[in-house]
């Protein structure tokens, strides 16, 4: 069986980055839509393989971001995302490992942020992007990115300090 160069290249990109695109999709739209978003994103990558840069992750996340914005009805996505954020907290709470209280607090505080702030922080903390790459994903200059990240971090700190954990606690009661 012979594989053409484009197929080899695409498969390599897919194998290397699918997990990261998936994680981004979950954090933006919840697990419910993640598979579809990842599928749509890589379909764009395949169709436009000629413009995919050598280090494709920021480009891929930028495409995923557009896919989410263009195609997922906002209310459906918000509901899915809300369920996702609740699950982060409840599932962190089930984990018997050390530091559970801190993880619950951090995830609850992240859930209390705006989507935009949360995206800025998680692109760095969970996707491991460098500032230039994160700026590319959200489509702003590096300077603007730093200002926004600074503000987002400040609000995360405030959310933690204000112990906004309680924002999600009523929902934990619901899950009994």
């Amino acid at each position: 069986m012979t594989e053409s160069d484009p197929e080899r290249r695409f498969t390599a990109i897919y194998d290397e980055h699918r997990a990261q695109v998936y994680a981004y999709a979950v954090s933006r739209a919840g697990r419910q839509f993640a598979d579809d978003i990842v599928g749509d994103t890589f379909l764009v990558a395949w169709r436009r393989l000629d413009v995919v840069p050598p280090r494709p992750l920021p480009w891929l996340l930028g495409v995923a971001r557009n896919v989410i914005r263009e195609r997922y009805r906002d209310e459906a996505r918000q509901a899915s995302l809300a369920a996702e954020l609740r699950a982060w907290v409840t599932e962190a709470g089930d984990d018997p490992a050390d530091g559970v209280a801190e993880r619950v607090a951090v995830l609850a505080a992240l859930g209390a942020l705006t989507e935009h702030d949360r995206e800025l922080i998680t692109l760095v903390a969970w996707q491991g992007l460098r500032p230039r790459q994160a700026a590319q994903v959200v489509g702003c200059s590096v300077a603007t990115y730093f200002v926004r990240l600074h503000r987002a971090r400040k609000r995360l700190r405030e959310a933690l300090d204000a112990r906004q954990v309680e924002i999600t606690l009523p929902l934990q009661e619901h899950t009994r």
Binding site: R18, A19, Y22, A23, V26, S27, R31, A34, E84, A87, W88, E91, A92, G99, E102, R103, V106, L107, L110, I121, T122, V124, A125, W126, R153, L156
Partner: peptide, 14 residues
């Protein structure tokens, strides 16, 4: 940021 990094939910993994 490090605190957030170490709180990454397992649900992000496929």
């Amino acid at each position: 940021i490090r605190m957030v990094a170490s709180s990454r939910p397992a649900r992000l993994d496929e």
